[in-house]
Each structure stands twice: as structure tokens, then as C-alpha cells.
Amino acid sequence: MRRSRWAALIAVVAALVAVGVAYAVLNAQSKAAAAPAESATSAQLEEGRKLFLEGCSSCHGLNAEGIDGATVNNGGNGGPSLIGVGSASVHFQVSTGRMPLAGPAAQAPVKTVEYTAEETEALAAYIASLAPGPASPSEEELDFSEADVAEGGELFRTNCSQCHNFAGRGGALSDGAYAPSILDATPQQIYEAMLTGPQQMPVFSNESLTVEEKQAILAYVDDLRTAPNPAGQDLGSLGPVGDGLFAWLVGIVLFVAVAVWIGARVR
């Protein structure tokens, strides 16, 4: 019996040490992620600056200070200041293809991505080096394998579905703006969208939605994307309007066709 008592003690100590070490490592890593400017190499910053001057400065200014006056949204060609927007915003905007903007639109559309992953990192590092801002999430922050899907569902319905619809399929906002479908976004982009709140979307800082809660949302969105629908074809998950259209265009049309057929069959 003595042996097992020692064993228990050793196990507890070992576990404590392991947790401590893991915490230190994770903490250091998330710090690193929160301040990528420090870890970015000067070569990367230089490349980022070059890319920025070539592709972005026409709208955002030579020093990313923004161009005053009319913005692209209302027909001019000015972009907002990028000082302090952080790497999360740059990565989100560039990796979804929103930036560089092609031309006037109610809001920057998602389109083909123009920069490689490395170039995007470089751009993000460069902007982040100008002033601190929300940083792209680390791998740990994006790991939602332990997250609670059900909690994510509740958070999603409380915070996101009023714009993005219950199934993440998107919806219209006023004056031609819209919340896009989020089913094609990567976990990183979803996380960054929450951190930076593009356009009419609110910012969900780590105070309003903790890292665990964000992970829960990631898990729920992943479930929305991958779980098979137990009830058949979902008609785009648009809610009752889709059902009504189907009832008329397929249901009633079929019934009337059968009626006509039977009607023509008596003679």
C-alpha cells in the first residue's frame, strides 16, 4: 500500500509541473502571436513594405495613414488609415480576397486571393509593426477540438445569427450591405472577423467573447459546415421562404399536373 501512496504523490507533482510548463510555453506562444511585429524578421517587414507600396498605398496612403475624403464606398478612391488595425485585420482582408479592393462597391466583395500566404504574412507584419493592434490568432487559439459545440451554438445564435442566419448562410443588411455566408471562411478568418469586426459587423474582443467562447463558435460553425443534414435536401437553409417557394413551384405544380392527367383519363 505504501508504494501506491508514493506513486500518487509523484503523479500529482508531475502533473503540476507539466501543467506549469505547458502554461509557460502556451503563454509565451500567445504573447508571440499577440505581438508578431517583434518576432517578424526585418526581411519580412521589408518585403511587406514593398508589397504595400505597390498594391495598397494608392488607396491607403504611402505610410498607411489613409486617404481623406471620399472613400471607395461612396465613389471616391480613398481607403481608411491602417495604423493600429493589426495583423488580424490585414490577414482577414487579404486572405479572403477583399483587399486589394477592385472598385467601388457597397462593401468589399470576397474575390480571388491575390497574395500568397507568405506575402499576406509579410503585409500583416508590416502593418502590425506601425502600431499595435489585434493580432492574428495563434494555432492554440484556433484549436477548437476540445470546444463545446452546444455552447458554440448558443453563442452563435445570440451573437451572429441575426446577421449571418441560423445556418451561417448570410443575410441582407440595410442599403445594399449584406452579411456574407461564413461557411467558406477558414477558422482563422472567422476568428479574425470576430476580432476586427469588418464593416457593419461588431467587434467581438476577447473581453466580450473569451478565447474559449470563440473556439466554441468555431466548433459550431465547423459542425454547420460538415455535419450531414438528417432531414434531406435543405433548400439553402433560408428558412420558411424557401419552403414556401418549393411548396408552390414543385408541390402544387405536381398535384395540378396529376389532376390534369387524371382529368384527361376518364373518357
Binding site: 441560423f166 432531414a231 408552390w248
Partner: peptide, 25 residues
Amino acid sequence: VTINPIWAYGPYTPDQVTAGSQPDW
């Protein structure tokens, strides 16, 4: 064909709402 996937809408709580909240046709 799916109709009224209530599990996807979630239970009712007064502080939640979804885009595409419509009645039946």
C-alpha cells in the same frame, strides 16, 4: 426535402433572432 429544421433554429430565448426569420408562406 427538409422543412422547419427546428434543431438548427435552436430553442426560443427572447434575446436571440436569426436572419431569414419568416412565417410560413
